[in-house]
């Protein structure tokens, strides 16, 4: 496998986790513009665990995901109730809050000869656990895709379970879900925590691949893209978001001469598809569900 292909696979795999987290919330009728916040939380936490505290790669990444999941659960405190536009705005504010806060985060420690740790706008450099552990990039790519496969299976299984059913019911009609005795709040908190964890897992994997992470990685465009990926692939299946990612990164980047115009072409593609085949992108049930949520949030 060429290095370029491997790096493409890794990027698709990593973004797929973030897209999957946006997808999970979409099923619950929540449109999040803030999943990039959990992505960097996971990245910073995993980086701190391995680079500063010497944890091995795997537990470090897992810890990053856990911290992001915890962040998601805390985020659910104020954000479980809002829906529609309110949730969208709140999550956007959250994502930006994380980014701006990281600009002010200095937490460095001496590791050998180097000063390691988050250094404000300069970011967090020297996350080298992947390379010191001797794992090859190809193996890492395979590992990411294995993890993604397992996550997908787990998600698919989860969505078919009673919890998944509950999630969809909340997406459909929160009041009705409450009246039939669903633990609405618990499901929402779990989903927000789970989505945070997924994005954080992507972040931890990213930080170790890139060896650094900076506040700029919490760019709102990451969250926006993740949402778009989930929509493009359709909401019917957890594979949807991955198809979206693959289409954007895989397809467009493989035409290198297009790379400079990627945003313009991808944007045009999404825009055009929405006009020509809105149902192909967004299955009707989901549109209906989401629009009802937007409508209701407004009343």
């Amino acid at each position: 496998m060429s290095d370029y292909f491997v790096s493409l696979l890794i990027r698709i795999g990593i973004e797929a986790f973030v897209a999957l987290s946006a997808y999970l919330l979409l099923l619950m009728g929540r449109m999040s513009f803030g999943q990039q916040g959990f992505f960097v939380i996971g990245a910073y936490a995993a980086g701190l665990a391995t680079a500063l505290y010497g944890m091995p790669l795997l537990p470090g990444v897992a810890l990053g995901a856990l911290v992001a999941a915890l962040g998601g659960a805390l985020f659910a405190g104020p954000m479980a109730a809002p829906r529609g536009l309110a949730f969208a705005a709140g999550s956007l504010a959250f994502g930006e809050l994380v980014r701006v806060a990281l600009l002010d985060l200095y937490f460095q420690g001496q590791v050998g000869p180097d000063l390691i740790g988050p250094a404000g706008p300069d970011g967090f450099r020297g996350i080298r656990a992947l390379f010191t552990s001797g794992v090859s990039v190809t193996t890492y790519a395979v590992g990411i895709w294995l993890a993604l496969g397992v996550t997908l299976l787990a998600t698919a299984f989860f969505l078919r379970s009673r919890w998944g059913e509950a999630l969809r019911m909340i997406g459909e009609d929160e009041e009705a879900a409450a009246t039939v005795g669903l633990p609405v709040r618990r499901v929402k908190v779990s989903a927000l925590a789970g989505a945070g964890g997924l994005a954080g897992l992507g972040g931890g994997l990213f930080a170790h691949y890139a060896t650094y992470v900076e506040p700029g990685h919490a760019d709102v465009m990451l969250g926006v893209h993740s949402l778009a990926y989930a929509f493009i692939g359709g909401l019917g299946t957890p594979l949807g978001p991955i198809i979206g990612v693959a289409l954007d990164i895989g397809f467009l980047e493989s035409f290198r001469f297009l790379a400079g115009y990627r945003m313009i072409i991808f944007g045009g593609l999404v825009m055009g598809l929405l006009i020509v085949r809105p149902r192909g992108l967004l299955d009707e049930v989901a549109v209906h569900r989401l629009s009802r949520f937007l409508m209701r949030g407004r009343r």
Binding site: M31, V224, M263, F266, G267, V270, P278, V287, M295
Partner: peptide, 20 residues
């Protein structure tokens, strides 16, 4: 289409304009 569709579409335009 549902209002959400317009909102998604405005993301797409946003990317385009910013890149442009």
């Amino acid at each position: 289409q549902a209002p959400v569709v317009s909102m998604i579409s405005t993301f797409a335009v946003w990317m385009q304009l910013q890149e442009l």
